[in-house]
Simulated scan of single mutants.
Amino acid sequence: MDSQDPVLVTEPRPGVLLITLHRPAVRNAINRPLAQAVDEALTRLDTDPSLTVGIITGAGGHFCSGMDLKVFPTEGVPLVADRGLAGLTRARIRKPLIAAVEGAAVAGGFELALACDLITAADNAFFALPEVARALVAAEGGAIRLPGRVPYHVAMEMLLTAAPLPAADAARYGLVNELTSPGQALSAALALAERVQAHSTDAVHVTKRIVQDTRGLDDHTAYTVQAPLSAPVFTSPAATEGSRAFTEKRPPVWQG
Rank of each mutant, 00 (worst) to 15 (best):
P14N: 11
P73I: 06
L159Y: 10
Q36H: 09
A86M: 08
P147F: 08
D219M: 06
V196Y: 12
V101M: 06
A135W: 05
E11S: 13
E194R: 15
L69G: 04
L146H: 04
A189E: 07
G242N: 10
A37K: 06
P73A: 07
A122E: 14
G54I: 00
E140V: 00
A155H: 04
F126M: 08
L112R: 05
L179H: 07
R13A: 13
A41C: 07
I93Y: 00
R195G: 01
L217T: 11
Y223E: 14
L34N: 02
P96M: 06
V101H: 03
V176S: 00
Y173C: 10
A231M: 11
V137L: 11
D2H: 12
D213W: 05
D48R: 01
T235K: 07
V53P: 01
L192M: 14
L85W: 07
L165V: 07
G216I: 06
T89Y: 01
L229N: 06
D5W: 00
E248I: 02
D202Q: 13
A104Y: 09
A100Q: 06
V154F: 06
A29T: 05
L165K: 11
L175A: 10
D123M: 12
S236A: 15
V196Q: 11
A162Q: 04
A185I: 05
R32D: 02
K249E: 13
M156Y: 13
L18F: 01
S236Q: 09
R209H: 10
T120I: 00
H220L: 12
Q212R: 13
L85K: 07
A29E: 12
A86Y: 02
P73V: 03
T10P: 02
I210A: 06
G58W: 07
R244W: 05
R92D: 12
T74W: 00
G109T: 04
D202E: 09
A170L: 04
D202A: 09
A139E: 14
A133L: 15
V80S: 03
A189S: 03
D46C: 05
L8W: 01
C64Y: 00
E157V: 13
A135Y: 08
Q197W: 03
A29V: 04
I210Q: 00
V150T: 08
I210P: 03
T247Q: 15
V137G: 03
T52N: 07
A191N: 11
F246M: 15
I98V: 13
E241M: 10
V77K: 11
T43V: 11
Q184T: 11
N124D: 15
D169R: 15
D68G: 02
G84K: 04
A121C: 10
L21N: 01
I98S: 04
R92S: 14
D68I: 04
P147M: 10
G15F: 08
A41K: 04
R250G: 12
L21S: 02
P14Y: 09
R27G: 04
N28F: 00
A37G: 03
L159M: 09
G216M: 08
A203I: 02
E194P: 03
G76C: 02
